[in-house]
């Protein structure tokens, strides 16, 4: 089975240690959420996994070949039409123009974009449409690992729910692994099979939670209730600064022993 294993991930920006001995595993078809307050090094971690940043130290084994990346902002190329933005990754893979445009058209339609909109440039589209295109661009390359860097944090509730549904549908169809980064616990509860709690200064993993209920069976009520339960957890409250206290910094990280997992 394809998997991503990360161990002993350390990173420093100058003198400041942003990541301290982070490690996790992600297997094919699973979705893993890294949850933590802003500034705990989540984005840095994702960039290190994607190879966009050279960490100070990391042991990584990554069997996943195709990679889709959805950024915090849509980050569309302003000079390409929506269609060409959707097909950007396909073009990089060498898919011929007619084929990739056909794929972009059908993907665009599945994501709720009209053919008319696909001819437009990003600045002519609403924020929601730009996010759809950003999601489509990540899905177009048929990734087996999808990296999501808080892509929904700036969207309104209605749009968020719509994109969650689209994302879940696409993940279920394709069976790709998802590594989601978010500061929104409810988003994590909604989309993830496992949640890793991160604490800042230095950024580190302090706890793992497992959500055993299959995603398809999760109701709104269950999501709210589970999020509520997590919010009462002492470590979660300390990590998000809701409660005074300190969380231990592991001297050496032995995966599986430090956070044993907790069934919710």
């Amino acid at each position: 089975m394809n998997a991503l294993h990360v161990r002993h991930l350390h990173h420093r920006f100058g003198l400041q240690e942003v990541l301290h001995d982070v490690g996790f595993d992600l297997f094919a078809g699973q979705s893993l959420a890294l949850v933590g307050p802003s500034g705990c090094g989540k984005s840095t971690l994702l960039q290190a996994v994607a190879g966009l940043l050279e960490p100070s130290r990391m042991v990584m084994q990554n069997d996943f070949r195709g990679l889709g990346y959805m950024f915090q902002q849509p980050n569309l190329m302003p000079w390409l039409t929506a269609r060409d933005n959707l097909a950007l990754g396909l073009k990089a893979l060498g898919v011929p123009k007619p084929a990739r445009q056909r794929q972009a058209d059908s993907l665009g339609q599945r994501l709720g974009l009209a053919l008319d909109d696909l001819d437009k440039y990003p600045h002519q589209l609403s924020g929601g449409m730009q996010s759809r295109i950003s999601l489509g661009r990540a899905l177009a390359v048929s990734p087996d690992l999808l990296l999501l860097d808080e892509p929904f944090s700036a969207l309104d509730v209605g749009l968020k729910l719509e994109l969650y549904a689209l994302l879940r549908e696409q993940i279920a169809q394709r069976g790709c692994a998802v590594l989601l980064i978010t500061h929104d616990l409810m988003e994590a509860v909604r989309l993830a099979d496992r949640i890793l709690l991160m604490a800042p200064e230095p950024g580190r993993v302090v706890r793992e939670f497992e959500l055993t209920l299959p995603q398809a069976e999760r109701s709104e009520a269950w999501i709210h209730q589970t999020t509520g339960q997590l919010m009462e957890n002492t470590e979660v409250r300390i990590a998000f600064g809701l409660q005074a206290g300190t969380l231990a910094i592991a001297e050496s990280h032995d995966h599986g022993a430090t956070h044993t997992g907790c069934k919710v």
Binding site: Q47, A50, G51, F71, N75, L88, R137
Partner: peptide, 11 residues
């Protein structure tokens, strides 16, 4: 950010 996109999608 756009440079990162290019890197992530291996242009």
């Amino acid at each position: 950010q756009l440079r990162r996109v290019a890197q992530a999608y291996r242009l």
